[in-house]
């Protein structure tokens, strides 16, 4: 952590940053909170570890909305955060030269909703890490788990744990966890009968309370006005009617198609442990197979849904 703080302090003054987006210690065990610091002196508050699950690229767009496109902002970036930054630059959300990407090696981050599931309503007061194991201590219980059991599903099959594009990189690049095959769960799910698949989605989305935490945690959801909030005309009902909710989730995934960097921030933000990732992952796979595009890897390739090829496959068109 000391190396991180020292280097950030230097970058802050070298690059003449006006703001740095990183992580600071949270108020609960195994939680961090985004930290937006405005001077190099505050750098010692910064941390980076396996509790840093939020995608910070989200705050770049917020900050631009707040103070225009002229600020010079630094961002601490895991592989997924950096990819989101690249994709946002490609979408013209801000200028490349106004953002300083500071890559950090990611070894997987804890998904708070998985942690809640494991604890079954209880809460912890401290934890101890021993290599791959983590022991959780509550008021009158103790639970030993494999760290992988708490890591976000996105991390378990992540291909880009280190920033692909960056201005600085602090630390030694880490290896992908490689615990799961990237599309195994999608492929397996696809083997089920259509009725079963529909029932699954209905069951998952029926828990949705339309709090929009998934949308708001997502770095790619930056519309001034989301289609669900539009009132002239009002496209979908705002109550928790199931069909309205399902349409919200489908359209959210369609809007992030070819842009989603699978950081898992949506799933981690969901207070009701809804499987938000499944549909998005299937779309990600389609975008790769059909258009050969993976978002956020470089500053040259045109994003898949903003371009076309004359010979794109069209087997589904009569």
């Amino acid at each position: 952590m000391k190396e991180l703080v020292e280097k950030i302090r230097k970058i802050f003054s070298d690059e003449k940053l006006e703001l740095l987006i990183g992580y600071t210690k949270g108020t609960l065990p195994l939680r961090s909170t985004p930290g937006l610091i405005e001077s190099a002196d505050e750098a010692d508050k910064l941390i980076f570890d396996f509790t840093c699950c939020n995608n910070l690229a989200k705050y770049l767009v917020d900050e631009k909305k707040r103070s225009g496109n002229t600020h010079r902002i630094g961002i601490i970036a895991k592989g997924c955060d950096a990819r989101a930054v690249v994709q946002l630059v490609m979408e013209g959300q801000f200028e490349r030269e106004n953002v300083v990407i500071i890559g950090v090696p990611c070894k997987g981050v804890i998904d708070p909703s998985k942690l809640r599931k494991k604890l079954n309503g209880k809460e912890i007061i401290k934890f101890k890490v021993n290599r791959d194991k983590i022991t959780l201590f509550g008021k009158n219980f103790e639970l030993e788990l494999n760290k992988n059991e708490l890591f976000s599903d996105s991390c378990l099959s992540c291909r880009y744990p280190n920033a692909v594009q960056y201005d600085y990189f602090i630390g030694e690049p880490s290896e992908p966890l490689g615990v799961r095959d990237e599309y195994a769960s999608v492929d397996e799910f696809e083997q089920k009968l259509p009725e079963k698949r529909w029932t699954y989605f209905e069951k998952e989305y029926s828990r949705c309370i339309r709090c929009y935490a998934c949308r708001n945690a997502c770095p790619m959801c930056y519309c001034e006005e989301c289609f669900v909030d539009r009132s002239t005309p009002q496209w979908i009902g705002k109550g928790n009617d199931l069909s309205d909710t399902i349409i919200f989730h489908i359209v959210r995934v369609l809007h992030t198609a070819g842009r989603c960097v699978d950081c898992g921030a949506c799933a981690a933000a969901c207070p009701l442990n809804i499987d938000i990732r499944m549909l998005g992952k299937r779309i990600e796979k389609e975008v790769i197979e059909r258009f050969g595009f993976t978002p956020g890897l470089d500053f040259e390739t045109e994003p898949a849904m903003a371009t076309f090829k004359e010979n794109d496959k069209e087997e589904f068109i009569m």
């Binding site: 299937r282 779309i283 389609e286 069209e314």
Partner: peptide, 12 residues
């Protein structure tokens, strides 16, 4: 449309 079609079919 290719993406929409994939999504709908995947959902059942």
């Amino acid at each position: 449309f290719a993406i929409l079609k994939t999504a709908l079919e995947f959902m059942g």
